[in-house]
Design a binder for these strands. Structure first.
Length: 196
DNA sequence: CTACCGATATTCT
DNA sequence: GAATATCGGTAGA
């Protein structure tokens, strides 16, 4: 865990994440380095939002995206070096009923198919920011190590929604043939901001 | 399946 | 003001 995000990320595939009475098996993650990574929130240094990324590894970095959605990261990296792995998707292994309650109308495959959907299904919000994911008493738990990943099933490619210099860095990792893996969409500049 | 669009916090310009 | 580590609804092929 106290290693660079890009090394930690593929090792989280198949790991289990438990929160809000739901357990998921992670099928898709993305690595974000610190101040050297143009795609990272920490690229421009420490802000109130990203402060936790500069802290000890194993904690949760929960951020609010697009004014609407929560997304969960695992803080990684050698001490004093920012880094995080975004948990993008998973398959519900336990607590399916609780997940369905939080995401009415979603098909089983779509329950945790995407970083904001995953947080919604598990009831994760900013209240869980900075919590220690490895502490057995934490409300959000990452269970390590994962069950072994079959050789050859780990795929990698460009990160979703990342524009600019970091766009082509293949730091998204997923398990092949998993229906819960979110669909890749290249970063697209928004057409127009609503004029007020 | 693809394409578009609105919601709107945080951060930067 | 503008961009962004997104999603759900709607429209159309």
């Amino acid at each position: 865990m106290a290693r660079p995000a890009v090394e930690v990320a593929p090792a989280l595939l198949n790991a289990r994440l438990t929160a809000g009475g739901v357990t998921v098996r992670l099928t898709e993650v993305e690595a974000y380095a610190g101040e050297s990574d143009p795609g990272s929130h920490a690229f421009r240094g420490r802000t109130p939002r990203t402060a936790v990324m500069f802290g000890p590894a194993g904690r949760a970095y929960v951020y609010f995206s697009y004014g609407m959605h929560w997304c969960l990261n695992v803080v990684t990296g050698p001490d004093g070096q920012a880094g995080a792995v975004l948990l993008r998707a998973g398959e519900v292994a336990d607590g399916c009923d609780a997940a369905r309650e939080r995401r009415p109308g979603a098909s089983d495959r779509d329950l945790c198919r995407g970083p904001a959907r995953l947080c919604r299904a598990l009831g994760i919000t900013g209240d869980q920011d900075s919590t220690d994911l490895l502490d057995p008493t934490s409300p959000v738990r990452l269970l390590l190590p994962p069950s072994p990943v079959e050789a050859g099933l780990v795929r990698s490619g460009p990160r979703v929604g990342v524009a600019g210099a970091g766009a082509l860095t293949p730091w998204r990792f997923w398990l092949a043939d998993e229906p819960s893996v979110s669909v890749y969409r290249p970063a697209v500049a928004r057409r127009r901001t609503i004029v007020s």
